[in-house]
Design a protein around this nucleic acid. Structure first.
Lengths: 332, 332
DNA sequence: TAATTTTATGCTCATTACGAGCAAAAATAT
DNA sequence: ATATTTTTGCTCGTAATGAGCATAAAATTA
């Protein structure tokens, strides 16, 4: 019936990868899935189970096949298995990137089809304590400890990363390569004059990876955890892509509100933005910005904090979502 | 050898779509390919030819299959057939979006595999007159005449689009839908208080399409050309995505220089930016911006114009490309 | 040759955006 | 009551942005 299934083109399979983000207790979290190793050992060649990474020592992002016969769009395919797999209703979804590099998935080596994987970013609301327990939520900074500057410059930078970068620079083959490496390190890690740029998450990860300091799934050295917890396959790369994209996006689109409960105080909103961007913001200026953009409106109610002066409660003005151009929530 | 080729998953084929852009004589151009109708009529079921849209009455973007066995990355696959098909060396390439909607490609209906298409944007340098003749370059505003504001507000807006939008708004089923439509139209087309936003190319196209005013391949009404020339399949949608993305990107990344010859005057640079963004810029402020960012350096030479005072020639400082954070070339 | 046209380039000015901090208000904790 | 903590309002200096004036240096035209 189908033409051409014998030629090289047909050896392709489409996977959908979801980075599902929620900010819980001021920490940005990603949803993992139960590693299916145990269940799949019984029927190892089950087509569906093939889609789960078989290596159970690593954290794995939700990942599923795309069945074209059943789904009119990639996104509807994503929503359907995410719903089943994670009991998570996902609202806001955005396509991230399509990863097609050979060798992404070790199963390819065994003659399996090439897996092209379309990555998606989904944002879900802060969960109540019971709902949290249902899912495997993990603080994303556990994979990228150098990305969280909220409590000041992360120690890991000066203790582990910079010395290693110095070695990498010294190891260059030529003077020009050395200069290149030095410049690249300076830009991505904000050395010298260059300021730290919170969006360069993927660039930093790739530099560390290139410098053979970061472990992806295959490589596993003793001190690998010093540079963040590894993940299965290329999932850490996908997560880095998601974080960088989200950090960029909150600056010009009002997407943070997808992560907020229906009403919130301005400080709560600020804490969520800070959690995502990994840096602290000036409180008064943050309020000025938010109010100027007209993104929120006061509910009239007041929230009594644990301590301190009670804060006014706000809600997001859903109307501005239609206004696709409505601005974001961070200046810089 | 390959497991699972019989199940629904295998009915997938990956296509790569290229939007290849060059600014020629101050007009933004996209490269089309020769429609293959004539050649493929002899062997209609040839696997490779299946990848070319068979309808020869529409303009078609370069489009080719991805052979996973031959290419380690999607991008290398793209570069290889683009080179063969168009005689174009492409330098800068960026992944745009992955289009997977059912019904994109009419061949699916005939039992063919679902075609998932990964769109790419490529920028190539301005060609000399002879090189131009080799390719099928087309001014992109021929497909989106309402996007070019360089000579003032495009007539088509008030003459054709706004009246049609008004009808569409009036046709709403409910008052709330009417309000929604009104707001959406106002935002995307810059009505009332809202200013025109040059990045909303796709949003405008989709609104027009939804409002059943724009023809994609299948539909062909007599007055369709009034709202821009149609393209094959969903190629106009892909092009709209590319234009919007590029208009956004030039604002924060120095990508314009990919379109420039080795040396150029500041006015030439400005004209290219204006061609892409479809609007005029303030000359003195543009120079101030460019020079402040340190993106260019004077060559010392001077270009004698056709008339007027001779202008200094500049070259792009390639060094800043390593600095991924180097800023773009438009403020707004 | 002199005036006109065209483009390049330098500079000013008003307005707005941004980063930083002072200070008072309103609650709880000791 | 006093200290502490958080909210909220306000100011101030600096930088960025948008608009325009003015002069320079060439070609074209009268």
């Amino acid at each position: 019936m189908t033409l051409g299934t014998e030629d090289t083109r047909s050896q392709i399979t489409i996977g959908l990868n979801a980075v599902i983000v929620s900010v819980i207790d001021q920490q940005p979290n990603v949803l993992l899935v139960q590693n299916k190793e145990e269940t799949s050992s019984a029927s190892a060649s089950n087509a569906s189970d093939q889609f789960f990474p078989t290596d159970n020592q690593y954290d794995v992002l939700p990942f599923g096949p795309f069945y074209p016969a059943q789904h009119p769009t990639l996104e509807s395919g994503l929503r359907s298995w995410v719903g089943e797999q994670t009991n998570q209703e996902i609202g806001y979804v955005e396509q991230l990137y399509t990863f097609g590099n050979a060798g992404r998935d070790p199963r390819e080596q065994g003659g399996g089809p090439r897996v092209i994987s379309v990555g998606y970013l989904a944002l879900v609301q802060d969960k109540n304590p019971t709902a949290r327990e249902e899912g495997l939520w993990r603080d994303w900074y556990r994979y990228f400890p150098w990305e969280d500057w909220r409590e000041g410059r992360p120690e890991i930078l000066d203790r582990d990363i910079l010395p290693a970068l110095k070695n990498w620079i010294e190891d260059a083959d030529s003077n020009s390569q050395k200069k290149e490496r030095k410049e690249r390190a300076a830009i991505t890690f904000g050395l010298g004059e260059t300021p730290w740029n919170d969006e360069l998450v993927l660039e930093r990860f790739e530099l560390l990876y290139e410098a053979a300091m970061v472990t992806e799934a295959q490589i596993d050295t003793v001190d690998s955890k010093k540079l963040g917890i590894p993940m299965a396959l290329d999932h850490r790369r996908i997560l880095a892509t998601a974080i960088g994209r989200l950090r960029g996006k909150i600056k010009y689109r009002p997407v943070v509100f997808e992560l907020m409960p229906p009403t919130f105080t301005l400080l709560q909103l600020q804490r969520v933005v800070e959690a995502l961007s990994g840096s602290r913001l000036h409180k008064q200026n943050f309020r000025r910005l938010i109010e100027k953009k007209g993104l929120v409106e006061a509910t009239g109610r007041i929230e009594t904090q644990i301590r301190g002066r009670p804060a006014a409660q706000f809600r997001f003005r859903r109307e501005v979502l239609i206004e696709r151009q409505a601005l974001g929530v961070r200046q810089n």
